[in-house]
Design a protein around this nucleic acid. Structure first.
Length: 498
RNA sequence: GCCGCAUUCGUCUAGAGGCCCAGGACACCGCCCUCUCAAGGCGGAGAUCACCGGUUCGAAUCCGGUAUGCGGUACCA
């Protein structure tokens, strides 16, 4: 049943690169919006001007686009104007809206200017701590008379705006957590909603904007659960409808603390650069804190949208398990079409080239021929260099120590490689195919009383420089007859000279 | 400290009173396949369902308490 009324939003702060937790919150908002046929909004919360940058904004927008989480309203391109009926969608461009709301609260006596200095507030806090009291604003400026305020303003002091918290209980029914209640007296006293410099603070802007943008469902991280009563109080004071809330379980470090840059890789960028693909990341993130209730695990974004139900989201935090992400990435890489995989591999091969790890770019045809043997061997796109880089360099220089198979000695290896070279040389260019190479080399091993595996391993190391590679005969074909022979010669020389 | 939230295999989870001496997946181990590495197939090990009480003929599932963990407690978001 499509619900055109539902409106949700992701509201990142451009104070850092796109974080995995933000991506997950964005995903769950997207899933819910798409599942019920609602609207998904992107709003930038850039009121922390000292830490917000255009560069981070770009990183966040690019990352969300990369994940495929298209939004219906909000800025499409970093730095560019937003589209949507409630534009602008950057908070620093919405200052007049907050000023008007603040003015209303002030006029209604629901907020008041506070002239306390940081030193005073600090002293209060220390005293409370010493008395083993919970920290809270003492209310020094709550009852200032108009004359007293004027006097302070005359001294040139600029007040911050504090919201009167009042007393009583605030309760709400969280979609994932159920009924939650807070006693207002535990909120820490009247809190600041506008800084002395005139810039509004998060708790205030989030409420003003969610109301202005007609957000019906606030889906966000559990770290905001304790802030929710403050928001509800503000919604009420401003005469707005209170939206529904859904607080998502946190993504955790292995030690079960909130996932952090310090202990985990949190930047989506880093995963992109390693060669994780969006299908896998989306699939993995959706399964952190939610499941279909069936045994289905590998699901596309559209399949997840179909099955998603915000009410089935878990309450407990979930440790980020990179191994499982890698497994899913492999699953999704294996499902890619040849053309698609080639396109996605190109930038990663390019990076190998730029880094000087390889010397030439393979052609599409060359890559396509390789796909059957590399596709199932790629845990990430970034693994391509390790897997096949030896194909795109002029020469490899195998370590003599690894060139000699475990059961062989150096002279046997020289003999084996020499014999293999002669055998391979008899296979002409026209018929240089895996099926043409394997039988004669097996026959050679048998005739000499060698284990085929030993002979093959010696050849493998000689032509690739490594012990783990795609299947040998496909590798030789990819290398081509001339380079295969040249590398065998070189390996023999290396062994003979060592 | 205060307030809030949470707690099923190492990890992600299934489970909404009997179908559960708890199922699946990742990781791990073994076997098969096999020229290496993967992938794939098969199998194994792994959870007294945090603990203690209660309700009930019967509890992972309901209730109470305890413990532990986490989150919040800013003129950060």
């Amino acid at each position: 049943m499509p619900d055109p009324i539902t409106r949700v939003r992701i509201a990142p702060s451009p104070t850092g690169p796109l974080h995995i937790g933000t991506a997950r919150t964005a995903l769950f908002n997207y899933l819910h919006a798409r599942h019920v046929g609602g609207t998904f909004i992107l709003r930038l919360e850039d009121t922390d001007v000292t830490r917000s940058t255009l560069e981070f904004e770009k990183d966040i927008l690019d990352g969300l686009h990369w994940l495929g989480l298209a939004w219906d309203e909000g800025p499409e391109v970093a730095g560019e104007p937003a589209r949507g009926p409630h534009a602008p969608y950057r908070q620093m461009e919405r200052l007049p809206t907050y000023a008007a709301a603040a003015q209303r609260l002030l006029a209604d006596g629901l907020a008041y200017p506070c002239y306390c200095t940081p030193e005073e507030l600090d002293a209060d806090r220390k005293a409370q701590e010493a008395a083993r009291q919970p920290p809270r604003y003492v209310g020094r400026c709550a009852k200032l008379t108009p004359e007293e305020r004027l006097a302070r303003e005359a001294e040139g002091r600029r007040g911050a705006l504090r919201f009167r918290v009042g007393e009583g209980l605030v309760a709400f029914d969280d979609i994932v957590r159920g009924h939650v209640e807070f006693d207002v007296s535990n909120l820490g006293g009247d809190f600041v909603i506008v800084r002395a410099d005139g810039n509004p603070l998060y708790h205030f802007t989030v409420v003003v904007d969610d109301a202005a943008m007609e957000v019906t469902d606030v889906i966000r991280g559990e770290d905001h659960l304790s802030n929710t009563p403050k928001h509800i109080l503000l919604f009420r004071a401003l005469g707005y409808d209170v939206p529904r809330f859904a607080h998502l379980p946190l993504i955790l470090n292995p030690d079960r603390t909130k996932m952090s840059k310090r202990k985990s890789q949190t930047a989506i960028d880093a995963y992109i650069n390693e060669g994780f693909i969006p299908e896998a990341l989306v699939n993995y993130l959706a399964l952190l804190g939610w499941s279909t209730g069936t045994e289905e695990e590998v699901l596309s974004l559209d399949e997840i949208v179909e099955r998603f139900d915000i009410g089935e989201v878990h309450k407990g935090g979930a440790v980020f398990d990179r191994e499982r992400l890698e497994w899913l990435n492999g699953q999704w890489i294996r499902r890619l079409s040849a053309d698609d995989l080639i396109d996605r591999l190109r930038p990663f091969i390019g990076k190998e080239l730029d880094a000087g790890l390889i010397e030439q770019m393979p052609s599409d045809e060359e890559l396509r021929a390789l796909l059957p043997v590399i596709q199932e061997r790629l845990p990430t796109l970034g693994a391509i260099g390790d897997l096949a880089g030896f194909l795109w360099v002029a020469d490899v220089d195998p370590d003599p120590a690894v060139l000699v198979p475990k059961r062989w000695d150096a002279p046997t290896t020289i003999e084996g490689l020499g014999a293999a070279r002669a055998t391979i040389a008899t296979v002409g260019d026209v018929v240089f195919e895996a099926d043409e190479l394997e039988p004669p080399l097996r026959a050679l091993a048998e005739a000499r009383g060698w284990k085929a595996g030993d002979l093959f391993m010696a050849i493998r190391v000689a032509v690739t420089g490594r012990t783990a590679t795609p299947p040998l005969f496909d590798t030789l074909v990819a290398l081509g007859r001339d380079r295969t022979l040249a590398r065998l010669d070189r390996a023999i020389a290396v062994l003979a000279g060592s």
